[in-house]
Design a protein around this nucleic acid. Structure first.
Lengths: 148, 148
DNA sequence: CAATAATAGTACGACATCGAACAAAATTGG
DNA sequence: CCAATTTTGTTCGATGTCGTACTATTATTG
């Protein structure tokens, strides 16, 4: 890598890391109790992609170790936000279903999210988002593919 | 927030979050032992901004709770990568200095970083980075300012 | 079909994160 | 000055993350 290309790539990841951290902190402030981003992420995924997914498929989707997801799912089940049932097609496996309570929680979180990030739109125009998003998506896909 | 603005803002943060996670995982693979990103971040900060900083100033710079930084600094001191000395201007406080070993570690990590992310430059042009960076920086600054 | 390998999920332990409470020192306000 | 408040850093406890090792089940292969 040429010397002059390191700093700017570095700077980009640095900004991305800080933004991710600030966004996460701001969002989690809006969540009740001990709920954190991964809890919401699971519920949101179950609604966007559809429930009945296996834990392993979800762990891959989120790029986290399956042991991390085991813990996250246990919390969600404890709180009645998901149900875990045996996978009829594979006795080793399970399927994750979102409950009515889980759907409500997710919807409330979305509303809080809009509330939390609403002020941003006044200062950070949709234009800029539209301009960045394709590049961000391309970068994410490249990195996703690169992680053999 | 208008309904049509939520999804794209949401999508942007989602991409940013995934990229941050993938970049962190890829980078940490290159680090030895139990060293993780925050360890490197501290060493890098001490070189970029200058050492002799107080823990609290650094916690603010990284947007992390001071208790988290206490732990990170303890690890770095254990491994001989930093020194912590009393702050001559405030007996409650300390100053953090990077050691020769710490500098070497940071330089090695930078080299590993370049190695790790080198292949990206073939697929993700510097042009795109240059195009995105000002927007990312602007967004980071807005969010930083917003967190009262 | 049996033996072997691969896969799904979990238990456990080491370590990271971070809020609450704390002690020590500095600052402030009367 | 002195008392009250604020600031700095740590300790402690609860929880999250994740690598290793394990069990149960399924897939492969000779």
């Amino acid at each position: 890598m040429d010397d002059d290309k390191v700093p700017i790539l570095f700077a980009m990841f640095n900004e991305i890391g800080i933004i991710a951290q600030l966004a996460r902190a701001a969002f989690e402030e809006q969540l009740p109790d001990g709920m954190i981003l991964p809890h919401f992420t699971v519920l949101n995924h179950l609604i966007r992609v559809g429930d009945g997914q296996t834990p392993l498929a979800m762990a891959r989707a989120f790029q986290v170790p399956k042991t991390s997801l085991t813990h996250t799912l246990a919390v969600l089940e404890d709180r009645g936000l998901i149900d875990m049932r045996p996978n009829p097609k594979d006795a080793r496996s399970k399927c994750v279903w979102i409950t009515v309570k889980g759907r409500a929680f997710r919807n409330d979180a979305i509303a809080a999210l809009s509330e939390q990030f609403g002020p941003l739109e006044a200062e950070f125009s949709q234009e800029r988002i539209v301009r960045m998003l394709p590049d961000l998506t391309a970068l994410r896909k490249l990195m996703d593919a690169a992680r053999d």
